[in-house]
């Protein structure tokens, strides 16, 4: 399975490069417009109520710091919403609070700036694969 997608995206030929570039641009533009995506290349949107965790100044992926104000604003930029406040309220509204219980490893910085759809299909972002509470920590 992985091999097939690697051939498609990393074949090196003109077709591969066009396919890769198209996926890259479509993902980048849609996610930037819709979700304020920061192109980390290992997308967590489906776990965060479609809120990009990379918008947090500290880039927190596993929950809020202790600095969310009573009004839900960020400690670093008091005029902005705390990203984790948004994640919590959105997940609650979507009845998806269980997704907050997933554990995410640190960002793989070698993937930042690459399309997460390609990384997902080729299995390259498996370092960023979340795992639930209760399972053995890696």
């Amino acid at each position: 399975m992985e091999g097939r997608f690697e051939r498609i995206f990393d074949g090196g030929g003109l077709v591969s490069r066009v396919v890769y570039g198209t996926v890259f641009l479509v993902e980048k533009w849609t996610k930037e417009v819709l979700f304020g995506c920061h192109n980390c290349g290992q997308c967590l949107l489906s776990y965060t109520g479609y809120t990009c965790t990379m918008r947090c100044p500290k880039g927190l992926r596993n929950g809020p710091c202790g600095g969310t104000s009573a009004a839900g604003k960020c400690e670093v930029y008091p005029d902005r919403w705390c990203v984790w406040y948004l994640i919590y309220t959105r997940c609650k509204r979507l009845h998806r609070l269980d997704t907050l219980r997933m554990m995410h490893p640190g960002v793989d910085w070698s993937l930042v700036g690459t399309p997460s759809w390609v990384n997902l299909l080729t299995g390259r972002d498996k370092v960023a694969e979340p795992f639930g509470l209760g399972k053995e920590t890696r």
């Binding site: 009573a70 554990m103 509470l133 920590t137």
Partner: peptide, 24 residues
């Protein structure tokens, strides 16, 4: 590790506390 009992919302702070316990 640390936890903020006055955090808002408390629920996400507690979920994070559970993650910290899970993580060691």
């Amino acid at each position: 590790a640390v936890v903020n009992p006055g955090a808002n919302p408390l629920e996400s702070q507690i979920i994070k506390m559970e993650k910290k316990i899970e993580a060691g």
